[in-house]
Design a protein around this nucleic acid. Structure first.
Length: 240
DNA sequence: GCGACAG
DNA sequence: ATCTTGTCGC
């Protein structure tokens, strides 16, 4: 895996910035209406040995409130985590999982920022543009931007600002819980993104597409960990 | 220079 | 993301 100490690192980061700027130039902002019935969701995690990126993509049926398809992917980790360049680390695995989805979906939710990024190209925007499909960024915490805490009621929101430009929304999805940071990915507008996020909320703070993808990637992680038994351990499931 | 910093 | 037990609250 590449590292910050690699002599090629500065060049790699410059290339990444150029890539993000080129992608952001292709961003299209349009309303997403009506909101799609089938919404995809994707998330990533690390394999137990931390040498691979595991990803899961799901398709959520808003009408029946259930997951109708699950896809997975596993790829070697090629880069360390560097703030503002998350998509280069997790993107490949996530894209592979999304590509395996066969059921139709009208929009996809990503676990991270979209437009609310220094170069307006967070993971959600980066991947949505590569897919050229409607996408939304739903992050659990802030990367950049200033805001005032929204009221404790579910549905309340406050603008996420970068100077005088609104880059996203701080949205409370459940009463008395920490708000989420919603921003557009691609082919949606901020209001549609907020409505989609709220329309996908079930019993928990995190909208179902992203929450289910997270649960699924965790299961994959455990499954892989259990299948790779250490040579120094007796057969069977003694480790739990 | 110092602090911040999605997952 | 991940490390980690109990514990506060619905």
């Amino acid at each position: 895996m590449y590292g910050k100490s690699d002599p090629k690192w500065p060049a790699i980061v410059q290339q990444w910035k150029a890539t993000q700027q080129a992608l952001a130039a292709k961003l299209r902002i349009v309303p997403l209406r009506p909101l799609p019935r089938f919404v995809a969701g994707a998330d990533a995690a690390f394999s137990e040995n931390r040498r691979s990126v595991l990803a899961a993509a799901v398709v959520y049926d808003r009408l029946e409130r259930r997951i109708v398809e699950i896809a997975r992917a596993c790829r070697p980790i090629e880069f360390p985590y560097v703030p503002t360049f998350l998509s280069f680390r997790e993107g490949p695995a996530v894209l592979e999982a999304v590509g395996k989805l066969r059921h139709p979906w009208g929009a996809i939710c990503f676990d991270g920022q979209g437009y609310a990024h220094p170069r307006r190209c967070g993971l959600a925007t980066h991947l949505s543009i590569l897919l050229d499909r409607p996408g939304v960024g739903i992050a659990k915490s802030r990367l950049i931007g200033t805001f005032v805490d929204p009221p404790p009621q579910a549905g309340s929101r406050c603008p996420l600002m970068d100077g005088d430009e609104q880059i996203g929304l701080v949205l409370r999805t459940k009463d008395g819980t920490r708000p989420l940071f919603v921003s557009i990915g691609h082919r949606v507008d901020l209001e549609s993104a907020a409505e989609l996020a709220l329309a996908c909320v079930g019993r928990f703070r995190i909208p179902e597409p992203t929450r289910q993808a997270d649960l699924e990637v965790s299961r994959l992680k455990r499954a892989l960990a259990g299948s790779v038994t250490s040579p120094m351990m007796p057969p069977g499931r003694l480790s739990q």
